[in-house]
Design a protein around this nucleic acid. Structure first.
Length: 271
DNA sequence: AGACGTACCTGACCGC
DNA sequence: TGCGGTCAGGTACGTC
């Protein structure tokens, strides 16, 4: 569901409530989401949050008790600020009860999301994080890095930029959008791409993600910011869910790659 | 290795 | 109104 810009937007919304805040307790309304909730939650009372940050699409809460909480929102997950007196709504699975009568609730109809814990000292060694590639908005994701990977690979470029071990945070929407801006056909085999095209793609990936963060993310149906309101970047889509290309007015076409729908303009994006 | 398909789950929407 | 089919911001895992 949320891609990097949506998770980043949620993180920024959470910061005022969670940074240096206290989790009074954690209550669950079922035993699991994608994986079981940690049994440790039952004994945790009044734990200070020392730091809140994002890695890929994970939100990480580093706690004063030596643990970190990892939160992933899957396809349909939302974090919402609620008053702690409210009864759980449908698909509310876990509540982080805060001071001042507030709680942060994870609501996720499809339950592809997860909440788990690990030791704060070696978060990056956790099984869910250890294989992840660089953050797209840092300098370590650059033309040289990407070109070094792609010249010896054969998969289609769209599938490659959605591979978490290559670069994190790029989901279906922003993969489609950045390829359109770069005028690269999504089925192009990566080892056929020139260095110039790779350079352009790296730049456009960074631009699209940054612009989407500025717009508060994209709302299709499930995604909402912490306050329940929508993001705005969906109004700036060039190809995703679009009918006509705004550049050449040809019809936008769809195809399926690795089980996901790809949107592209067949005249602007050439192999 | 790396490239693929599959599974996990609910809800919205469309055509009959 | 209801039913079946299809689709949806993700990703770990099994198989070839």
């Amino acid at each position: 569901m949320p891609e990097l810009p949506e998770v980043e937007t949620i993180l920024r919304g959470l910061e005022p409530y969670l940074n240096n805040g206290v989790i009074k307790e954690i209550t669950t309304h079922r035993a699991d989401m994608r994986i079981p909730f940690p049994p440790e939650f039952k004994g945790w009372k009044n734990i200070r949050i020392e730091k809140i940050r994002r890695r890929a699409k994970y939100i990480i809460l580093e706690l004063a008790n030596g643990y970190a909480i990892l939160i992933h929102l899957g396809m349909s997950g939302k974090l919402l600020l609620r008053n702690s007196c409210n009864a759980p709504a449908k698909h509310d699975h876990i509540d982080f009860i805060l001071e001042n009568n507030k709680r942060i609730t994870l609501n996720d109809p499809r339950r592809f999301g997860l909440v788990t814990i690990c030791n704060s000292s070696n978060i990056n060694d956790h099984k869910l994080l250890s294989h992840l590639g660089p953050e797209p908005l840092t300098d370590s994701f650059n033309t040289k890095y990407l070109f070094n990977i792609i010249y010896k690979r054969k998969k289609p470029i769209k599938t490659l930029i959605m591979d978490n071990s290559v670069v994190v945070g790029v989901g279906n929407i922003y993969a489609c959008e950045s390829l359109f801006r770069s005028r690269i056909h999504p089925q192009t085999q990566v080892n056929k791409l020139s260095k110039e095209k790779v350079d352009l793609l790296v730049k456009n990936l960074k631009d699209v993600l940054s612009e989407a963060i500025q717009a508060g993310g994209s709302t299709l149906k499930d995604y909402a910011k912490l306050d329940g309101k929508s993001g705005y970047f969906q109004h700036n889509f060039a190809v995703y869910n679009q009918k006509k290309c705004k550049t050449c007015s040809n019809n936008i076409e769809k195809l399926t790659q690795s089980g996901r729908t790809t949107f592209f303009c067949p005249s602007c994006q050439i192999i």
